[in-house]
Amino acid sequence: MSLAIQLPAREDQMEFNLRIWEQMLADPELAKVEGRIETDRHGRIIMTPPPGPAHGGRQADIAFLLRTMLGGRIITECPISTSDGVKAADVGWFSDARYAQAFDRRFFLEAPEICVEVISPGNTRREMEETMELYFDAGAVEVWFCDEDGTMRFLEPEGLLEKSLLCPDFPPTIEA
Protein backbone atom coordinates (compact mmCIF):
# COMPACT_ATOMS: atom_id res chain seq x y z
CA MET A 1 0.00 0.00 0.00
CA SER A 2 1.28 3.47 -0.91
CA LEU A 3 0.68 6.57 1.13
CA ALA A 4 0.83 9.78 -0.88
CA ILE A 5 1.29 12.96 1.09
CA GLN A 6 -0.04 16.06 -0.60
CA LEU A 7 1.16 19.55 0.28
CA PRO A 8 -1.63 22.03 0.81
CA ALA A 9 -2.78 24.20 -2.08
CA ARG A 10 -1.57 27.82 -2.01
CA GLU A 11 -4.92 28.97 -0.57
CA ASP A 12 -4.73 26.34 2.16
CA GLN A 13 -1.12 27.27 2.89
CA MET A 14 -2.17 30.92 3.11
CA GLU A 15 -4.81 30.11 5.73
CA PHE A 16 -2.33 27.98 7.63
CA ASN A 17 0.26 30.79 7.48
CA LEU A 18 -2.34 33.26 8.77
CA ARG A 19 -3.25 31.04 11.70
CA ILE A 20 0.37 30.37 12.72
CA TRP A 21 1.42 34.02 12.24
CA GLU A 22 -1.47 35.25 14.39
CA GLN A 23 -0.39 32.89 17.16
CA MET A 24 3.17 34.18 16.90
CA LEU A 25 2.07 37.83 16.97
CA ALA A 26 0.01 37.15 20.09
CA ASP A 27 2.93 35.52 21.93
CA PRO A 28 4.43 38.06 24.39
CA GLU A 29 7.68 36.07 24.68
CA LEU A 30 8.28 36.15 20.92
CA ALA A 31 7.69 39.91 20.94
CA LYS A 32 10.83 40.25 23.09
CA VAL A 33 13.07 38.40 20.65
CA GLU A 34 15.55 40.42 18.58
CA GLY A 35 16.26 39.37 15.02
CA ARG A 36 14.22 38.07 12.15
CA ILE A 37 11.46 35.54 12.69
CA GLU A 38 10.02 33.58 9.79
CA THR A 39 8.19 30.27 9.49
CA ASP A 40 8.49 27.27 7.26
CA ARG A 41 5.59 25.54 5.51
CA HIS A 42 4.98 23.43 8.62
CA GLY A 43 4.62 26.43 10.91
CA ARG A 44 8.00 25.94 12.58
CA ILE A 45 9.75 29.11 13.65
CA ILE A 46 12.98 30.07 11.91
CA MET A 47 15.01 32.69 13.76
CA THR A 48 18.12 34.51 12.64
CA PRO A 49 20.19 36.99 14.63
CA PRO A 50 19.99 40.71 13.88
CA PRO A 51 22.11 41.68 10.86
CA GLY A 52 25.38 43.56 11.12
CA PRO A 53 25.75 47.30 10.51
CA ALA A 54 26.74 46.98 6.83
CA HIS A 55 23.66 44.84 6.14
CA GLY A 56 21.33 47.26 7.90
CA GLY A 57 22.95 50.24 6.20
CA ARG A 58 22.51 48.75 2.74
CA GLN A 59 18.94 47.80 3.58
CA ALA A 60 18.22 51.41 4.62
CA ASP A 61 19.95 52.84 1.55
CA ILE A 62 18.02 50.57 -0.81
CA ALA A 63 14.73 51.48 0.89
CA PHE A 64 15.55 55.20 0.65
CA LEU A 65 16.53 54.99 -3.02
CA LEU A 66 13.40 53.03 -3.95
CA ARG A 67 11.18 55.51 -2.12
CA THR A 68 12.93 58.46 -3.76
CA MET A 69 12.96 56.96 -7.26
CA LEU A 70 9.61 55.16 -7.40
CA GLY A 71 7.40 56.45 -4.60
CA GLY A 72 4.92 53.75 -3.64
CA ARG A 73 5.27 51.83 -0.37
CA ILE A 74 8.53 50.56 1.07
CA ILE A 75 8.50 47.87 3.74
CA THR A 76 11.65 46.60 5.45
CA GLU A 77 11.59 43.12 6.95
CA CYS A 78 8.54 42.65 4.71
CA PRO A 79 6.55 39.55 5.82
CA ILE A 80 5.16 37.66 2.81
CA SER A 81 2.98 34.56 2.82
CA THR A 82 4.66 31.98 0.55
CA SER A 83 4.18 28.32 -0.22
CA ASP A 84 6.98 27.67 2.30
CA GLY A 85 5.60 29.72 5.19
CA VAL A 86 6.06 33.40 5.97
CA LYS A 87 9.32 34.88 4.68
CA ALA A 88 10.62 38.38 5.33
CA ALA A 89 12.24 40.23 2.43
CA ASP A 90 14.88 42.70 3.58
CA VAL A 91 13.15 45.38 1.49
CA GLY A 92 9.88 45.24 -0.44
CA TRP A 93 8.61 47.86 -2.89
CA PHE A 94 4.87 48.01 -3.56
CA SER A 95 3.04 50.18 -6.03
CA ASP A 96 0.16 51.91 -4.25
CA ALA A 97 -2.32 49.70 -6.13
CA ARG A 98 -0.69 46.40 -5.13
CA TYR A 99 -0.20 47.55 -1.55
CA ALA A 100 -3.92 48.26 -1.25
CA GLN A 101 -4.83 44.74 -2.37
CA ALA A 102 -1.98 42.78 -0.73
CA PHE A 103 -1.97 44.42 2.70
CA ASP A 104 -3.19 42.43 5.65
CA ARG A 105 -2.53 43.53 9.20
CA ARG A 106 -0.53 40.36 9.82
CA PHE A 107 1.53 39.93 6.63
CA PHE A 108 1.30 40.44 2.90
CA LEU A 109 -0.96 38.11 0.96
CA GLU A 110 0.97 38.83 -2.25
CA ALA A 111 4.63 39.70 -2.68
CA PRO A 112 5.65 43.26 -3.45
CA GLU A 113 6.58 43.94 -7.06
CA ILE A 114 10.24 44.19 -5.99
CA CYS A 115 11.68 41.95 -3.27
CA VAL A 116 15.25 42.72 -2.19
CA GLU A 117 17.58 40.48 -0.22
CA VAL A 118 20.81 41.85 1.22
CA ILE A 119 23.20 38.91 1.27
CA SER A 120 24.74 38.02 4.63
CA PRO A 121 27.84 35.85 5.17
CA GLY A 122 25.66 32.94 6.33
CA ASN A 123 23.45 32.88 3.23
CA THR A 124 24.03 30.09 0.73
CA ARG A 125 23.45 30.25 -3.00
CA ARG A 126 20.83 27.50 -2.79
CA GLU A 127 19.00 29.30 0.03
CA MET A 128 18.85 32.52 -2.00
CA GLU A 129 17.69 30.67 -5.14
CA GLU A 130 14.89 29.04 -3.14
CA THR A 131 13.93 32.38 -1.60
CA MET A 132 13.87 33.99 -5.05
CA GLU A 133 11.56 31.26 -6.37
CA LEU A 134 9.23 31.68 -3.37
CA TYR A 135 9.00 35.44 -3.99
CA PHE A 136 8.29 34.95 -7.70
CA ASP A 137 5.69 32.28 -6.88
CA ALA A 138 4.05 34.75 -4.47
CA GLY A 139 3.80 37.39 -7.22
CA ALA A 140 7.06 39.37 -7.24
CA VAL A 141 7.89 40.94 -10.61
CA GLU A 142 11.59 41.35 -9.81
CA VAL A 143 13.90 40.00 -7.12
CA TRP A 144 17.07 41.91 -6.36
CA PHE A 145 20.15 40.78 -4.49
CA CYS A 146 22.67 43.10 -2.88
CA ASP A 147 25.88 41.11 -2.58
CA GLU A 148 28.27 41.48 0.36
CA ASP A 149 30.40 43.94 -1.64
CA GLY A 150 27.32 46.06 -2.43
CA THR A 151 26.92 44.89 -6.04
CA MET A 152 23.28 44.75 -7.08
CA ARG A 153 21.81 41.90 -9.15
CA PHE A 154 18.36 42.27 -10.72
CA LEU A 155 16.29 39.25 -11.74
CA GLU A 156 12.94 38.51 -13.29
CA PRO A 157 11.40 35.03 -13.49
CA GLU A 158 13.16 34.43 -16.83
CA GLY A 159 16.60 35.22 -15.41
CA LEU A 160 19.21 37.90 -14.82
CA LEU A 161 18.59 41.45 -16.03
CA GLU A 162 21.25 43.98 -16.99
CA LYS A 163 19.29 46.53 -14.92
CA SER A 164 15.90 46.66 -13.27
CA LEU A 165 12.96 47.05 -15.62
CA LEU A 166 10.85 48.63 -12.87
CA CYS A 167 13.57 51.04 -11.68
CA PRO A 168 16.13 51.27 -14.52
CA ASP A 169 18.08 54.13 -12.88
CA PHE A 170 18.77 52.19 -9.67
CA PRO A 171 22.55 52.22 -9.03
CA PRO A 172 24.56 49.06 -9.73
CA THR A 173 26.34 49.30 -6.34
CA ILE A 174 25.32 50.26 -2.80
CA GLU A 175 28.13 51.54 -0.58
CA ALA A 176 28.54 50.12 2.93
Rank of each mutant, 00 (worst) to 15 (best):
W93K: 07
R98Y: 03
M14A: 11
G122F: 07
E15N: 09
P171V: 01
F16G: 02
C146L: 01
F154R: 00
M14H: 15
L18I: 12
V143K: 03
P168K: 02
H55S: 12
D104I: 02
G159D: 08
P51D: 02
R73Y: 10
C146M: 04
W93G: 05
A31E: 08
P79H: 03
F64C: 08
E110M: 04
L70R: 15
E110R: 14
A111M: 13
L160H: 03
R67G: 14
V33L: 15
E156K: 15
F94T: 04
Q23G: 11
C78N: 09
Q101H: 05
S2Y: 03
Y135C: 10
A97N: 01
V33Y: 08
E142W: 01
D12H: 08
E22N: 12
Q101I: 04
L18D: 10
P157F: 00
M152I: 03
A60V: 09
Q23V: 07
D149Q: 12
M152P: 08
M128N: 13
A9S: 15
M69R: 15
S2P: 09
E130A: 06
A100G: 02
I114Q: 00
V91K: 00
F170K: 08
L25C: 10
L165V: 12
R67V: 01
M14D: 04
L30W: 02
G122R: 13
V91P: 02
W144D: 12
D40C: 04
W93S: 05
G57C: 04
L18S: 11
I45T: 12
L25S: 06
E22T: 08
A111R: 09
D90S: 13
D104P: 09
M69F: 01
D61L: 04
G159Y: 00
D40P: 07
G85K: 07
R153F: 00
T151F: 07
E127D: 04
A4H: 14
A102F: 11
P121Q: 14
R153H: 15
G57A: 09
P50E: 13
D27V: 07
L109F: 01
A63Y: 00
H42C: 01
F145Y: 09
E38N: 01
E113T: 04
A102Y: 14
V86Q: 13
A140P: 11
P53T: 10
F64R: 06
F108L: 15
R153C: 08
P172N: 07
D137I: 05
E22P: 06
I114D: 02
Q59R: 13
K32C: 06
W144R: 15
E130G: 07
V118G: 10
M47F: 06
P50Y: 02
R98V: 01
A100Y: 03
G35C: 11
D149L: 00
G57I: 00
I5F: 15
F145W: 08
A4P: 05
F154E: 05
N17H: 06
A88Q: 11
E29V: 05
P157H: 04
R73H: 13
C115N: 05
R58D: 12
C146N: 13
E175M: 01
S2T: 14
E127T: 04
M1P: 08
E162N: 12
S2Q: 14
Q59A: 14
I74M: 03
T39Y: 08
I114N: 08
P171Y: 01
A97T: 01
P53C: 06
A88S: 13
K87I: 06
D169S: 13
Q13H: 09
R126D: 15
L18T: 12
P51M: 04
T124W: 10
A88M: 02
E148Y: 06
Y99S: 03
L160W: 02
